[in-house]
Design a protein around this nucleic acid. Structure first.
Lengths: 166, 166
DNA sequence: CATCATTATGAGTCATGCTCACTATCGTAG
DNA sequence: CTACGATAGTGAGCATGACTCATAATGATG
């Protein structure tokens, strides 16, 4: 890509074209990182008998505590029907249980089993280890620069209306 | 693995703990960015009648030029059968055609239609615009720090064996 | 020419997502 | 207290995208 159109300008637009190319290169890096991190997470996941979506549900459940499926659906921004399916799978594999809700006989409370709790703790620990692997060898000022840049980008995305719900 | 051997030392372990928290925060930012960028790309895609996987195939095809499905399968690291399905969809929606291969009557050459070419060009342009939106307002030194940090992380991932095939 | 490898695909499975319709229950207006 | 509308969960059915296994057609090679 990038039969880049610098040139064709005279005094200062070279700056603009150079910026554009630099932006493209930076965005390429971000997207590549996106793909690599995603792939790595998903690869590690299935070792535990967990699929990406089910893991995401577990993660959400950890944040919410025992709760009805509707709350999970809202938090994950997926349909209640999909939550039913994911919880089905997690119940079948022993990560959560459906407990009757004391307050509402229509609802169930999705609740961690000990295995589910252990799985989430394990994921947390893996993430800590991964953070160490990624950043421990990085010079401190470069690390600080990275975090500042990421914050800037996240702030920009937030301003553009792209945000995570919570 | 790696219930880390920081060993509970006294004098400087505060540093280690602080680092760990900083690493976790940085990783959180990276993962959040991962999710946000992914979501945004997929959202924009379906406006064009393209699914994420089919778009990925188009992107690969742009890199490879007209080629048999097996080449696409290898490049995308998915099974040939899956490529058949994706190409089916792209043919049905008019983005590519299956041309007979002159050299091998078993194979077909997946080839862009004008609509397909236009779609990829449009995606490229969108990406350039997105890069500008993300980075144009960022101070130059912060941008440089971000890129340096990203390169560092990508290098580390590469060293860990995580890399993109191409 | 016979055999083996390769290309694409049919058939069948699984995981995620969706909608629509339905039951059971809740809450509230009357 | 009852009747009605909202809410929680699920059954049925569909689409996408990934996989495997089997198979037909063709290529390549001894």
């Amino acid at each position: 890509m990038t039969h880049n159109d610098e040139h064709s300008s005279f005094d200062h637009s070279a700056d603009d074209a150079g910026d554009d190319a630099a932006y493209a290169a930076a965005l390429d890096r971000l997207l590549l990182l996106t793909v690599l991190l995603n792939d790595d997470m998903h690869r590690g996941l299935q070792d535990d008998g967990l699929t990406p979506s089910r893991t995401s549900l577990l993660w959400t459940l950890r944040r919410l505590g025992p709760c009805p499926q509707k709350a999970i659906a809202d938090a994950m921004e997926i349909s209640p029907r999909t939550v039913t399916g994911l919880v089905d799978g997690l119940v079948a594999t022993g990560f959560v249980t459906r407990e009757p809700s004391p307050a509402d006989r229509r609802a169930v409370l999705v609740t961690f089993t000990p295995k589910g709790t252990a799985a989430v703790e394990s994921l947390l620990e893996q993430q800590r280890g991964f953070g160490r692997q990624l950043f421990a060898a990085m010079p401190r000022d470069r690390f600080a620069g990275l975090v500042a840049g990421l914050d800037d980008v996240l702030g920009t995305l937030h301003a553009l209306g792209l945000r995570k719900p919570f």
